[in-house]
Nucleic acid binder design. Structure first.
Lengths: 191, 191
DNA sequence: CGATGGCTTGAAATCTCTCAAAGAAAGTGG
DNA sequence: CCACTTTCTTTGAGAGATTTCAAGCCATCG
């Protein structure tokens, strides 16, 4: 479990290209699936210094058998991960440049907000353009150009790793972002 | 649960573009996630005449509480779905034309083989080029051209809805296909 | 037999990539 | 605190992949 910091899970194609398939932030358990899937089909990497906690499968199984509602809670977590993957398939498959990027930024903002890491429409996002490229299915060069365009259009403001969203509604609209798929208990009105 | 026939789950972007996020075949439960996720975040459609079975959430919950191993089995199913989504993100994000298409065809062949729907490296695939396009993140026109190229290269043979793979190893290689992510119990050597 | 859905074609427009290099920024060691 | 290295960002121009638009073909079906 990630206690603080940013990590990601990724896969590598036969040609050595990397695809980040999820970003994991505080509170996430990036490898919960290993409880029931014996063979690893993706890798985990940190994107910033992280503090992490480890829970043995044994302990998890114990918890689950003694408290069935815990099972449901964990299961639900993995189902939400799957819902996010589905959304990523759509994002990568059907949106281009600015829209695709805006969508990802919206998702990150909402998830970060849910764990208290957003203040004044801004957050610390220690993700490089190369990493965004690997998550969005672009080249780093293209991400750079997309970011420039988004800055020019006033969609984002960046200072180092700090990201500020001047107009949340507009970013949401550009990214066609609907947070339903995140299945948050408390509805996130705005970041 | 799909008993026979082909279905898919999909999402629609704000601009009305469709992205198929999974194909479901005999034995699949396309909406198992609804057991723990109250809000629907994708749609299901049939691609061919299907016979389907319905299981109420109540019955499922009953089964799960009485037989914890059933819980694990269902949970595992949803985790495999998630693993497939991850692979799709990579496929759509990092592979192009022929390779992306080959990968999808490999996945379908292996999954169909697992339920006995492949004979002599061939299967019935009632999926139109428009639907392939929506699954691969291409336009129908491009899928058509990719198919033509694959036919010309002897990677696939099509007669109506029947798909034959003349050289499985080559298709696998072109699609960089490694079935690990499908987490099949019995390893599928070849389709 | 006309209608419909699916497949195929061509040419031009777009988006995104590649390659190659230079400019910032950040971390390291003295 | 400065030089030095490394990592990250930015630029330009040409190439490549994919889309768009628009039309024609083919099979199937009522």
């Amino acid at each position: 479990m990630i206690l603080s910091g940013f990590a990601c899970t990724y896969k590598i194609t036969g040609q050595g290209k990397r695809q980040i398939v999820s970003f994991t932030i505080a509170g996430d358990i990036p490898d919960l699936q290993s409880l029931h899937l014996k063979v690893l089909d993706n890798s985990v990497a940190t994107l910033s210094p992280c503090s992490v906690g480890f829970i043995t499968h044994e302990d998890l199984r114990h918890l689950c058998t003694r408290f069935p509602r815990i099972t449901s809670a964990f299961w639900r977590e993995t189902l939400i991960d799957a819902a996010i993957f589905r959304e990523w398939v759509m994002n990568v498959g059907r949106r281009e440049g600015v829209s695709r990027t805006a969508h990802l930024l919206c998702e990150l903002m909402v998830r970060l907000k849910a764990v208290g890491l957003v203040e004044d429409h801004a957050c610390d996002l220690p993700i490089t353009q190369v990493e965004f490229a690997d998550a969005l299915g672009f080249t780093p060069v293209h991400v750079n150009r997309v970011f420039q365009q988004m800055r020019a259009e006033g969609l984002i403001v960046t200072e180092g790793t700090r990201l500020t969203i001047p107009d949340w509604d507009r970013l949401k609209q550009v990214g066609e972002f609907d947070p339903t798929y995140l299945h948050l208990e408390i509805e996130q009105a705005a970041a």
